[in-house]
Design a protein around this nucleic acid. Sequence first.
DNA 1: TCCCCTTATACTCAAAGTGAGCATATACTA
DNA 2: TAGTATATGCTCACTTTGAGTATAAGGGGA
Lengths: 329, 329
Amino acid sequence: MTIRKGQRFMVGLNAVIVAVTDESPRVLTVRGSELSMTDDHELAALPFGPLDAEKDRTLERGVRGWVREQTGLELEYVEQLYTFGDRHRHPIEHQGGPRMLSIAYLALIREVKLALDSRAKWLDYYSFLPWEDWRRGRPKVLDQVILPKLEEWVTGTEEWASRTHRQERLAIAFGLGGSEWDGEKVLERYELLYEAGIIDESVRTYRGKRRPSTAVEKRELMGRRMALDHRRMLATALGRLRGKIKYRPVVFELLSPTFRLLQLQRVVEALAGVRLHKQNFRRLVDRGGLVEGTGQIDSETGGRPAELFRFRREVLTERRAPGVGLPTS
Amino acid sequence: MTIRKGQRFMVGLNAVIVAVTDESPRVLTVRGSELSMTDDHELAALPFGPLDAEKDRTLERGVRGWVREQTGLELEYVEQLYTFGDRHRHPIEHQGGPRMLSIAYLALIREVKLALDSRAKWLDYYSFLPWEDWRRGRPKVLDQVILPKLEEWVTGTEEWASRTHRQERLAIAFGLGGSEWDGEKVLERYELLYEAGIIDESVRTYRGKRRPSTAVEKRELMGRRMALDHRRMLATALGRLRGKIKYRPVVFELLSPTFRLLQLQRVVEALAGVRLHKQNFRRLVDRGGLVEGTGQIDSETGGRPAELFRFRREVLTERRAPGVGLPTS
DNA sequence: TCCCCTTATACTCAAAGTGAGCATATACTA
DNA sequence: TAGTATATGCTCACTTTGAGTATAAGGGGA
């Protein structure tokens, strides 16, 4: 095994920065004009920058640096999400540029006001993935666009084995035929939509073929596009986050130090994309030792005043996997 | 944001390939002599190779290629684990070489006989992380070496905040003072041991300081070293795997198509590092719809003959998170 | 003032799931 | 034939969960 000298790579760092305000989840975006190098000059993009081989001691520091530079924000909770490295993910590769790798990070933050002149903007997370938000019932885009198209895609292959396989993936990802909808399977769903050509992202070619695209009038139902494969990163992040809230107390990164239980519930619902059973939710977080009352009362509720709670840090030493649990309603 | 031309990077691909044979978990290793570039010419290393910017269409293909080349194995189940990118992880960086990134993958496989002349070798997973194996009771290395040293490390800092923080991390990671041992916290434990200088890996410098190392006579209790930060990758992989078996039916990747329930249990125990309650374990996998009897009988048990079972694929469409569950005994 | 709307919070009750163990069946071996 | 090993069925108390019912306490408007 010979160690060759460095080939031509560019290593990009991306951040999926999530906040929840006014009961709706948001992601921090920048304008992706230069980035996308396509005709779509105003696609939203994730904060992005190349890793500096000399200056960035760790990947995480690199991410924090780029976010600071592009948005003015100082991140707290940050975790590595996934490394994307398929060839031709980025247009520069088509132009003889270096091979592009992107290491995506997930960050959670209490939403902050951005400077007016900031290039960054908070956008509704579900505006990119509308089929993931079930809080007001089953999203209509599912039955109006997605499932019909996916059924077509399933029957669109001759081979029996291939067809069965597609059918099974569809059933699992979208909760068909005996399966239930699983909120965590965000990426699986995105990938089916991508493979079936129901969403078309800005990278024009994939294995040399132009993908078929959905009729224009339906497109808006399918949510906003993002630059490059950033929407895939969004899907990856949401899936990870939905899993994680169940066994790590990460929601509290999105809340102020004290909060009403209903606020906590709304944040969880925003991430999980479903409504929860109120009484059982409080039972879980309270008896589960995740929160403790502060004794303070908040009267800004519009109803009976509520007690303010705080995160109980000790739960970390008491329980193995302290997360919130989703008593779906 | 300017896109600069490719800086000097080298992108390495590593594979943590896991199998379970004779009730003990194993990892596939190659000899790390060239790799480590240190005096330790015979440290075990993970199969490794640089990503080829031109030839490897995807990262996963790159990994499969290197594994094939170095071990002759054809991988099936593969998932991305983590990307390691801290500066000075690799000695070539000290010598003015390119910045080294390593993308680690986890692969599960039914153990195969290797060619006699193969450079690869199966080694016991717990020989590298002995404190993780509780199947024969609490590992003695914990009380004989680890905990005393870690207590020292905690009291070794003056600042109160720092001390409390260390104390809390210790309690959570190693199940002290009200906490219980959590099998999934493999990486947290590794990182404490690393920070406290209780294990010393082959990269000599870290932020310029030589780390203190444990007295030689105790070192063997702390398990074998690996080249570079490969033992950290092992820890990352084991933590991930222990989590994953609980909600994805990945164990079956390690078993032949039909098996006795006790075989299944032994494989789970090997990964989880604990003994399980037999009757409850069968209840879980059986009533949980994870397996189904084949009607065939296996008399090679040494006791009453057992029915052979197979994985029930349909469970994927029936349950959201089908994993095995650990009825600890 | 009182009714109504809103949110908060306590409590119940059945069903399902889990931890721990007893009991029995069927092989092989000394 | 006793003893050991594995396989498998079943019990029982306890906890957790799903789905409600009931009541408390604020504000606004008729």
